[in-house]
Design a protein around this nucleic acid. Structure first.
Lengths: 673, 673
DNA sequence: TTGTCTCCCGCAGGGAGACAA
DNA sequence: TTGTCTCCCTGCGGGAGACAA
């Protein structure tokens, strides 16, 4: 990785590199680009005159360290260059709206624009990076594109690649439960410490120093860096807890240290992917997503005048600002039902992954936007089976890599003359629209725990995007193997009396074998949904990817027996005393309170990093004694903790993300809504 | 006080009543009204059609218990009735603006309006009560008023009086340092507990019960009410701390329990008066005070259409929505320079007080609003001497009660025909404008501690409003005597080398005799401003009203010797390491963090109720170790604590309110900005 | 009658090594 | 090499009576 000293400790195998199966350097590739070398776009820069239209509102740091921003954004991020020509899809904005507008305001689904400005920003609250892209509609661009005057220089991401190439010493570590626990600090990987931190005087008994690192907002954080323990290891102790609490970091989030060329140490945060249901429409990008702001945007497009668009690189949204060249290329792709494709995605642990799949349909996502290319493809991913709804992708996100069933139907005539574009409808082949679902033979029949399983239902899996699919396997660690690899808590899968709930296909009852926890007798719980993939270790003794997916989608019949749950939480739960959590301030003095119970986690071990107190409301709606919602990571073993959490979620209609757990700390009833 | 069962434990002498020197029942009187019995205004109610103009923005509770609202608002509050005719003064809005508009938008200073609606509200954050008054300009009212068609029925406050009369069992207690300390709960006055709480079973060893009380927002709070201790007393323990922390209650704030006719126990909060400099323009009333909102208001007035005005009963602002009758009466007053007047004010401890003073001038407050009656009077208060600037009042706030020097000049002709109103200028007597300051002979010559004192300078006292003046004496307790009445820390007043600072007239050096605190050797500090009133006890041995006023106005020369201060805070302060407090989260898990160091207090004993942690920034601007800002109430005695605090304020340019104190808890330097 | 203070005790949480994967 | 766990120790804070104003 010449010139690019990046240690991502989450990479498969722990190495620096990412598996490369093509020549393009990973640092400069984008989601669907073919290889391209760095050169600048031929479009001259337009003068900047940003209209303060539906742009950022709240308190935002004005600008941000370029290197750090890109490090936080991830390697697959493509940002349009200032002055370049792009196609903007207003549907990308509507996607974020809680309410759908009744009309499309007579907008075309694609707006040709010039990029006036790109501002790299970070959310003040969460340190999440985003970019404010100022665009101005430009019909001349469309005209030149129709005339074939815009050449494909394959360089829509040049600026970013340049920035990435000079990225110096840095490392990124997904935080473990121990890293975020209240006991002790942050375990710094040895190579990372040696690479990024000033050297220690190892002649001392316990060498230590003070580390100063600037976050995205320029705020400095100080940590004690000590080399101690038997065997010795690098730790950040004093100051680390304050950082974790101030930034509301949970295990599963990743922290990123970067020693810049100027010698300044910087640190950023990559939040673990969050499930939509927790916070479906966050105040991300400092932008209020509502219809009135959208109207302002519409006005800018029709006027036309400059407007700003928020681009959240970690929002798992189909890109909606596409360089014209890339847009062109995606039109040239031979896409049709049955075509196989590949796509790069970033796993939730920040490791790049390559997914493959098959196009199963081509149709308008929304009939109100006929002919829009935005998410016009229905696809099915390899390795994800069952009867879940198809995911939706846009053509520019994927690269076709061969067909399976041969129904190739390239859109005719698009390449030469684009006069037919935009048409009222995409020129799909007749059978490309609403084609019958393409069905492969099930490829994952395997025997687990001596049970023969034909096919797993995937009830409740509504996720569209592959990254969202990834999120549904919170227990899958970075290597793709389950967290239970050490044999603790092996899950047994025993078919039992099936549920006859409508919509719930094949079902299985999971009997988890628990470690000898007397307090929590081995419970039986029913997985509302589960998924099996091939155990990467090659054996079948360990379930890979078996996790309880979002409980929200589970049918009502799938409920953990309350009696069992009662046992688990000391028998004090009264299911009739429903109430609500009014507030979840953390116990730590420096931990600001959350407006909602931020109880989530990436894996079973670390679903909740901090003990939190919540005021429980009793049936009268009155505030009562505080209850504890605390990680069971020390109190129970992994599986009982997970079971307990999931059961409690079910029991109380508690719909946080998978892996959330709660125990009571005394004799107070536990209440959730 | 028939029918009105109100225990205000802050009343002088601890009784129920308020000193009454006129016949009007205190429950129904307003700031300047003469006696009036309860009857309804003759004006019929206008249909409500509130325009959402510059009205409340943020999250507000929709409406609020009437009884509780009035209990929290205080007894001197006058609210316009729905449907009544009022005069609105836009200057009351501008008073709250951080920026002054360059023009007056051609508004008249007084707008005749009809009250469409009055909504009683409470701030979600602070529980502070306020009212949203919807007004609609109505020129007919003005015409009828000019024609003398609006009769003075003396009942502009009838609705409120009615509400007050039915106020049931309630009590109000200003919280002590012990009440808000982290150790132990709230000491409930015996009579209050017996009156408002359900009876306990006194046969038990430690009788206790659970008390449930609803706050202004309807949220319930539960407390353990226990009768224990030797001697026995009523306490609220469990739950009290959570309440204090959630509501961010500090000592000096008052808590109010009210057992309604429905048997429901309610509780409210009366915040201690805060000095403007801490939060000059709070987001009170859920209203954003800015020029653009003012423009909207202007539009409503000129259009005319309905608009809403926020009325903060505890904002210490001149009333700017005046019933037409009251406005009329104020014009009829024989006001001129030299006229003595009286005025009711609510002391910061919620006790009603009567102040008297002399009108020293009549002129426009703002030349941009010629002829406005808004704060057109300059007054000097009795008992407040020196060369401070005059306070400003509006005519409807006061009641004339005789003249001193006989230059009576009633505005001619106003009563019969009001055709001359509004004139470009008030018809002041020629010498009424910018009249030379009326000077009485000093009436407070007294001998204190054997020192003869002629007159006290009142440097730095910029306060306009008598209630603000009250705030400058944080140590003055409810009885008007100093907190030092017990002889601890008697202040000695010894004239010493005078300051020659320009603008600083006579000055004195205060030597406070401290209790034998070895750690804090008796310091010498200089009072930037001080005031003496006659000791209510009749003697001269105890200073009454001697307090350090706002340190902000003090001349640079008035600085506490840093060396002494160093000694006080363990000698670790390095004045060169200036920095800033980044955040002041409290140590308690349920205590939400404050955006600024909320260190204030009503009296010297209890300026800071909770130990707070703050991240201190060192000279590089980096966050460093947390420091403690904690109440010195246990660590030092009263006077050394106050001295320490004031000195530290001076030393570090720390401009919080008087009485603020800070100590370090270890070896960390203390930093303030 | 009630405000302050001190003592007691439980517990949260930083910081260390032990131990094992 | 590093994640988890346990142990130690400190300090906060709730709850009680002592004591005095």
């Amino acid at each position: 990785m010449g010139g690019f000293n990046f240690i991502d400790l989450n990479d498969v195998g722990g190495g620096e590199g990412v598996e490369e199966d093509e020549a393009a350097p990973s640092v400069a590739t984008t989601l669907s680009s073919s290889a391209g070398s760095a050169s600048s776009s031929s479009v001259s820069s337009a003068s900047a005159s940003t209209a303060p239209l539906p742009t950022a509102g709240g308190a935002l740091s004005s600008s941000v360290c370029l290197e750090l921003w890109h490090a936080c954004a991830g390697r697959l991020i493509s940002l349009p260059k200032r002055g370049s020509c792009v196609v903007y899809f207003p549907q990308g904005y509507l996607e974020l709206l809680p309410e759908r507008p009744s009309s499309t305001f007579n907008l075309l689904p694609h707006v040709f624009c010039r990029v006036i400005d790109v501002k790299l920003q970070a959310e003040v609250d969460t340190d999440e990076v985003f970019a404010l892209v100022s665009l101005i509609p430009d019909s001349q661009i469309e005209q030149r594109w129709r005339d074939g005057m815009i050449e494909d220089n394959g360089d829509e991401d040049g600026s970013e690649a340049a920035a990435k190439h000079i990225t110096p010493h840095m490392f990124c570590k997904t935080l473990t439960a121990s890293d975020t626990s209240t006991h002790g600090g942050f375990s710094v990987p040895r190579r990372a410490a040696e690479d990024c931190f000033p050297p220690l005087d190892y002649t001392q008994q316990r060498p230590s120093q003070e580390i100063v690192a600037k976050d995205l907002h320029g705020q400095e954080w100080r940590f004690r860096h000590i080399y101690r323990g038997q065997p010795r290891r690098h730790l950040l102790t004093t100051g680390w807890s304050a950082f974790v609490n101030m930034k509301k970091i949970a295990s599963g989030d990743a922290v990123l240290f970067l020693r810049g060329g100027d010698g300044v140490l910087r640190l950023g945060i990559r939040r673990a992917a969050q499930v939509k249901s927790v916070s479906p429409f966050p105040a991300s990008c400092g932008q209020q997503f509502n219809l009135s702001n959208f109207s302002a945007l519409v006005n800018s497009i029709t006027a036309p005048s400059a407007f700003s668009v928020c681009y959240n690189p970690r929002g798992n949204l189909s890109p909606f600002i596409i360089p014209v060249c890339k847009f062109s290329r995606s039109l040239d792709h031979s896409l049709s039902v049955g075509v196989r494709f590949k796509m790069r995605v970033e796993g939730e642990d920040a490791a790049e992954r390559r997914l493959t799949g098959v196009i199963t349909g081509m149709s308008d996502l929304d009939p109100k936007w006929p002919g829009s290319r935005w998410k016009c493809l229905s696809v099915r991913w390899d390795g994800v089976h069952g009867n879940q709804q198809s995911s939706r992708l846009s053509p520019w996100e994927i690269e076709p890599c061969g067909s399976l069933s041969g129904c190739h139907m390239t859109s005719p005539g698009l390449k030469r003359t684009r006069s037919s574009f935009p048409a009222a409808n995409l020129d799909y082949p007749a059978n490309g629209v609403r084609s019958p679902e393409f069905r492969e033979p099930s490829r994952s029949q395997k025997v687990l725990q001596g049970q023969e399983i034909d096919r797993f239902s995937f009830y409740g899996m509504q996720s569209q995007h592959p990254s969202e699919l990834m999120r549904c396997f919170p227990g899958t660690d970075r290597s793709g193997t389950a967290m239970m690899r050490n044999g603790v808590g092996i899950a047994q899968m025993i078919p039992s009396a099936p549920f006859n709930h409508p919509g719930f296909g094949e079902s299985f009852r999971f009997h988890k074998v628990l470690q000898g926890q007397e307090k929590y007798p081995g419970p039986t719980f029913m997985a509302p949904s589960a998924n099996l993939t091939r155990d990467s270790g090659g054996g079948f003794g360990i379930l890979d990817g078996v996790r309880v997916a979002s409980l929200q989608g589970a049918p009502p019949g799938l409920m953990y027996p309350p009696s069992n749950f009662h046992q688990q939480v000391n028998g004090v739960v009264n299911p009739h005393q429903a109430g609500e959590i009014s507030n979840v301030p953390a116990t730590h003095p420096l931990h600001p309170p959350s407006p909602y119970a931020r109880i989530f986690g990436r894996d079973l071990m670390a679903s909740l990093s901090h003990p939190c107190q919540a005021l429980a409301h009793d049936q009268l709606g009155a505030s009562r004694h505080p209850i504890m919602i605390r990680p069971a990571m020390y109190a129970t073993n992994q599986d009982s903790a997970a079971t307990e959490a999931n059961a409690s979620c079910r029991l109380f209609g508690f719909s946080l993300t998978e892996g959330a757990r709660a125990t009571t700390n005394g004799d107070d009833p536990i209440h959730f809504i």
